[in-house]
């Protein structure tokens, strides 16, 4: 669990081992990725498969006729979105600087 501000004295800590909900959030996992999803908006039919299957909740649905959007800061690059996309609108591209094995 994380704290926003560094506690300086005992009374800065909660009375009990507890904290605000959501404090396991990692604000930037962009460094976890080897591949990143790249969306071809023209191919996206907004079927929401990628949205419903994204385990990490980084895909946002937009209004009916528009394509989805992906938060790359929180994306771990698992590639599920590309795998489930029925129109191949998402491609997993290797991030520059990641060495080929």
């Amino acid at each position: 669990m994380k704290t926003k501000e560094k506690p300086e004295k005992l009374s800065d800590l909660t009375k009990t081992p507890s904290g605000k909900a959501g404090s396991f959030k990692l604000t930037d996992v962009s460094g976890w990725k080897t591949f990143k999803p790249v969306l071809d908006e023209d191919k996206c039919i907004n079927c929401l498969q990628c949205w419903v299957y994204c385990p990490h909740g980084v895909i946002e649905r937009t209004s009916d006729d528009q394509a989805i959007s992906i938060d790359l800061q929180e994306c771990k690059g698992c590639g599920i979105c590309a795998d489930v996309c029925p129109t191949d609108a998402i491609e997993m591209n290797k991030i520059r600087g990641v060495d080929d094995e």
Binding site: M1, K2, L13, T14, P17, S18, G19, K20, A21
Partner: peptide, 17 residues
């Protein structure tokens, strides 16, 4: 909403105090 059962990392000793 709260999370119970965890303390901020690195402060185990302080919670024992």
């Amino acid at each position: 909403p709260k999370t119970l059962g965890y303390a901020p990392s690195g402060y185990n000793t302080e919670y024992r105090v």
